[in-house]
Design a protein around this nucleic acid. Structure first.
Lengths: 354, 354
DNA sequence: GTGAAAGCGCTAACAC
DNA sequence: GTGTTAGCGCTTTCAC
């Protein structure tokens, strides 16, 4: 509900035009004001050492006085180095990206680098193959010194500056930071199995996503390692939503031989499981143990009294940024692929059987 | 803990160099390949109508084949219109910015605009006066068609393209989106007072922040409106943290005549209040009613069974973006200042007195 | 130590 | 309809 304040009556951008009147301040303006040539100003801007102290200070004074800043566009075009790193994301608002930003923000703080997050509104072009490549080349080699890309396919990317991929879904040739979906799911299963559970229900993620596949792989691998059977009836195909989690859990609970534990592939479906357990008049963990998995610590921890798997996506952002710094700087990497560790947050939602 | 995968042994950027070998693809390459002039390619790129269908398709074919994308830097420099809007934030990772991104992402989705979030790592320059201006002019008038700025001071900003300010702390002359801190706090108090509470404790925010001042104003105004006294003993100076919230609440609860309700200025201090109430062996709401305030719905709602004030920062981002679109498009604004509505989420944490 | 001038990739006159 | 050309603001030789 828009609140119209007094001053807002039929606003026309008058004031705005006033403040916009000023034309862009260029290096020529600074040169003119300082009584030197543009090249001298450029030298001062880039801290070249062949400028006399006297001139340097005079120019710096003028720059400060005028409040001049070089245009990113012009600088980018002319020189390789911009001190800007870029992040390419599909959707600015999704939790994964947001979590990533935290880590990237942390990594960049205190450095001399600036950060540009680039995201396109044209959804059509985002589903279309090759959008990453197109957006990438818009920044790469001009505005940014290096890029972090959150995209499933990196194979077809060709670029000029260093790149670090976040959770690539192909055999990528770039340095990358990857999730521990399989390992995390395995760890959950090992834990449940160690508690004595033998029949463990699984609520899978949205079909088609790699996280779904990997988490389910972890589930199955752990069973196999423990010599337990993989029962199709215990595996419900979910979609990472609470509603579906609810229905899947109901299906599991009404099985002739219901599982003693349920493992949900993300926080939302875990919530659905909790709903279903309560609706069935059962209690956690007395009747059934419940575990959830999530990328984002806060999401997982927001569910009280539920054992969860944390896997910090923000850590992925942090590591990726530091890898990129190294690449830009020309140093060799400590690892080409970094797998973020997982953490099992154990609460009272699981009960030991016997 | 870094996980070194097999392929990561002493990695040197060999592969990378290979993929980086390709030099930037320019408009000239496309022109050459299509057998036309650069201006024709430019015309095709910008969908000018004076190109023959034949030529148009030939050029488009080459563009697609080569995977060419125009350089943002070059385009920005030459033409006013880039179809990119920029957001300037101090800290990429703070909850306020992240929440804003959600709304901005939502607003931009499906439009023809791209989004650039700009943030600087140089913390020193961020505390320094005028950083906004410097960063702004780096993008403004070159890369972006308009900007959204999250900064307390907007007075000294001069720019070329439209600007929308988020929660400016000065008498700004730009279109802005502002918080409802005062109104929200007032609404909470009206609610508590309507329940019959007369002695309401307040845990203030971090001194120096405008949100702190405004929320406290709301607290005091509501008391005055109701003809109730403002008792200094009931107002604790907090800092938006859980720990301080805890200590402040303890102080309130051990008063000779303790309040029947406590209003915490944010979600964290509300958590501290809950801790203190429980530690004192008291219960909510039987012994004391508790309310929390927060900008971010999720934060406030994450506290179970606590009445909270929501004020969606993401909504601020959404509205700001749409205001900016209008400005860029040259349309007049519906309002120059938009105040985001607040919402009281009432749960069982408050008890009616008498 | 400083200036003049070329040109980065692109767009927008202006020719033809 | 299409090509030629002059810059946008900047960095970087190359003179002086």
């Amino acid at each position: 509900m828009p609140v119209l304040l007094p001053e807002s009556n039929s606003f026309t951008p008058m004031l705005l035009l006033m403040t916009q009147a000023k034309t862009t301040l260029t290096i020529r303006d600074v040169a003119k004001a300082a009584g030197v040539s543009v090249s001298t100003v450029s030298r001062v801007l880039n801290d070249k050492d062949d400028v006399s102290t006297e001139t340097y200070e005079k120019v710096q004074g003028v720059i400060a006085e005028l409040g001049y800043t070089s245009s990113l566009a012009a600088t980018s075009m002319r020189s390789r180095r911009t001190n800007v790193i870029g992040i390419l994301v599909v959707d600015m608002g999704d939790p994964f990206s947001l979590e990533l930003f935290k880590g990237i923000g942390r990594a960049i703080r205190g450095t001399e680098y600036d950060l540009i997050v680039y995201s396109s509104g044209r959804i059509a072009s985002n589903t279309e193959l090759g959008w990453e490549r197109r957006h990438l080349s818009r920044l790469d080699g001009s505005i940014t010194d290096g890029m972090i890309v959150v995209t499933p396919t990196t194979n077809e990317l060709t670029l000029i500056s260093p790149l670090v991929a976040i959770d690539p879904h192909d055999d990528n040739i770039f340095p990358a930071v990857i999730s521990s979906n399989r390992e995390g799911a395995s760890a959950v299963m090992d834990y449940l199995i160690s508690l004595g559970h033998r029949r463990i229900g699984y609520i899978a993620g949205r079909p088609g996503l790699l996280s779904t596949t990997h988490r389910q792989q972890g589930y199955q691998e752990a069973l196999q390692r423990a010599g337990l059977p993989i029962e199709p009836a215990l595996i419900q195909s979910g979609d990472y939503t609470r509603e579906t989690g609810f229905h899947c859990a109901q299906a599991l609970l009404t099985l002739p031989d219901p599982p003693t534990a349920i493992f949900a592939a993300n926080d939302q479906s875990a919530l659905g499981v909790i709903d279903a357990v309560h609706e069935a008049g059962l209690s956690i963990p007395d009747d059934v143990s419940v575990v959830g998995f999530d990328n984002i610590p806060q999401a997982a921890r927001a569910i009280p009294a539920l054992t969860t798997v944390d896997q910090s996506v923000s850590e992925m952002g942090y590591v990726a940024t530091n890898m990129l710094f190294k690449l830009i700087h020309g140093s060799s990497l400590d690892y080409q692929i970094y797998q973020v560790p997982i953490q099992l947050v154990i609460r009272e939602s699981c009960r030991s059987i016997q």
